[in-house]
């Protein structure tokens, strides 16, 4: 009898090996663990066995049953797993196909650069102050120490309107007077961004319309050293922590002393390249100590107050950073250009 049980077990396990899917597995279960299976018949006939054989045969029959049941479970698991693996094999995607396109929005590069400038000066306590584009001659020139027929006027090619005394601002500097008159005698730290206009023949480097960001700090203790320090801090954040700056004497009627700030070319590291024209330096902004006449016109006594001002062209910065050869791209709105930002 024991031998018969061993035989039942061996055969069942052998047949289990052969099952390949859920159907054959179920058939196997009926055949080997079902009511009419040889094993069950052994249980059925236990009562007919001699009394002394019953415990050993019964124990052995239960062992075989547990063994077959757990083998069934294991086989069942294995088949499920194999089926999943087979289906995974069949469901392979070409991961190199492109993704579903998204209609993505973008900020214009001008906005991106302006925001970067706002951010850097904002962190240094400079707030944004905006003023009008169509200006009076008085604010654009006279109050900035540029009287009519002064040779310094040659520095700006102006668009005049048909209304006498009304022009398109040639720089954001009239904002200096507006902000000073609004806040005097408080100390001031502002930047003045906005659109300016010059009567220029269009070229890759010059356009009739351009953004400028002016800066102004006025207080009782603001020095040329502070101008250098503040603008160098700006340059390092804008162009790289290790960038070197230099300040060259220059002339603007509304500042004195005046300085141009150059930075070491961040493309070639000062070695000389096509971007910096081989000089190793890039002109970035004009600056200077606010002229006493301008301070006075703004409502600040130059014997007590001092200040510095600066002005830069954000388009130039955008062009340098992205190697844009022609400034007109920034106003032509060719989507093939804009979609690269």
């Amino acid at each position: 009898m024991l031998e018969s049980l061993n035989q039942i077990e061996r055969q069942a396990l052998n047949e289990l090996e052969a099952t390949q899917d859920e159907d054959s597995l179920q058939r196997w279960k009926v055949a080997h663990l079902g009511r009419n299976s040889p094993l069950m018949r052994v249980f059925d006939h236990l009562g007919a066995l001699p009394k002394e054989e019953r415990p050993s045969i019964g124990r052995r029959a239960n062992e075989v049953k547990r063994a077959l049941e757990s083998a069934f479970e294991a086989r069942s698991q294995a088949l499920v797993q194999a089926a999943v693996l087979r289906s995974l094999q069949a469901e392979r995607l070409d991961v190199t196909l492109p993704g579903r396109p998204i209609a993505r929005g973008r900020l214009h590069p001008n906005t991106q650069t302006l925001r970067r400038i706002y951010r850097i000066f904002g962190d240094m306590g400079f707030q944004v102050f905006r003023s009008r584009e169509v200006e009076t001659d008085e604010y654009n020139f006279e109050l900035l120490n540029i009287p009519a027929h002064h040779p310094a006027r040659d520095m700006w090619d102006t668009f005049y309107t048909t209304t006498p005394g009304v022009i398109l601002r040639t720089h954001t500097s009239p904002g200096q007077i507006h902000v000073m008159r609004q806040y005097a005698p408080e100390p001031i730290r502002v930047i003045l961004p906005g659109m300016c206009y010059r009567y220029e023949q269009l070229s890759a480097r010059k356009d009739t319309q351009f953004n400028q960001v002016e800066g102004l700090a006025v207080g009782r203790n603001i020095t040329f050293g502070d101008l250098k320090g503040t603008l160098t801090d700006f340059a390092r954040r804008m162009f790289g922590e290790n960038v070197r700056t230099r300040f060259r004497a220059s002339h603007f009627p509304f500042t004195e002393p005046s300085a141009e700030m150059d930075i070491e070319c961040f493309i070639c590291g000062g070695e000389g390249c096509s971007v910096c024209g081989g000089s190793g330096w890039l002109e970035i902004l004009g600056s200077g100590m606010v002229h006493p006449v301008v301070l006075r016109n703004g409502g600040y006594d130059p014997r007590i107050y001092s200040g510095f001002a600066f002005g830069m062209g954000p388009e130039r910065i955008t062009m340098l950073k992205h190697r844009i050869e022609d400034i007109r791209h920034l106003w032509m709105n060719d989507l093939r250009f804009l979609e690269q930002f």
Binding site: G125, Q127, Y183, E186, P187, I188, R189, A217, G219, R220, N221, I222, T223, F224, G225, D226, K228, G229, T230, T232, D233
Partner: peptide, 13 residues
């Protein structure tokens, strides 16, 4: 002329 950081009263924010 040495580079310095402003050491002056901050304007109203």
């Amino acid at each position: 002329i040495p580079e310095t950081r402003m050491n002056d009263e901050l304007p109203p924010q």
